[in-house]
Computed example of a mutant assay.
Amino acid sequence: MTRFVHEVHMRWSDMDAYRHINNTAYLAYLEQARVAMFFHRNEGFSSGTVIRRHEIDYIRPIVYHPEPLRLELWVDTIRGASFVVHYEVLDGDRVAARASTTCVTIDFDADAPRRLSDEERAILRGFADEPA
């Protein structure tokens, strides 16, 4: 499967005193795209996920403009109770940031991680990046 693509509109208030999009806004952009990806194919997750870790490499600053940013997402490192979502944030045709989020599947009733089901693993593999 090709990467999942989602467009995110910046808000004027995302810009900081240095006249570029503040680093904290990126987490919201990543969340919007990740949620869209899972609602795109949500037919098998029996419970929720929590975020264990975010990593972001800022490549170039983004200055506010009305056109949306393009986020490309894919999944890898599928383990017993976790997986990693990777992102590229594109401003036009230029990569502005690369990021990853480690997600852990959780049983909210037991307040503990739970193993991914075979069906969930299949869904996640459907979001794998195409080999280069």
Rank of each mutant, 00 (worst) to 15 (best):
H65I: 05
R60W: 08
N42D: 12
D57W: 07
E43K: 15
V85R: 02
I51Y: 05
R79S: 12
T24M: 11
A28T: 07
I62C: 00
I51S: 11
R60V: 06
N22T: 03
T24V: 12
Y87T: 08
H54F: 10
A28Y: 05
P61L: 06
R70M: 01
G48N: 06
E31P: 13
L73E: 01
Y26K: 11
T77Y: 09
L27W: 03
V89C: 06
I78F: 00
V35I: 07
F38E: 03
F39R: 15
E72L: 12
R70I: 05
V35M: 09
F39I: 07
R3W: 12
M1A: 11
V75W: 00
E67K: 14
A33F: 02
H65R: 05
H86I: 03
D57A: 13
A33T: 03
E55P: 04
I59T: 11
N42F: 10
V85T: 06
V85P: 01
I78Q: 00
N23W: 02
E7W: 13
R19S: 13
R52P: 13
V8Y: 02
A25D: 03
V85M: 04
R53D: 13
P68E: 10
A81W: 08
F39T: 12
I21A: 01
G44T: 09
S47N: 11
H20K: 05
N23C: 03
E7L: 10
L73A: 03
Y18H: 12
V63T: 10
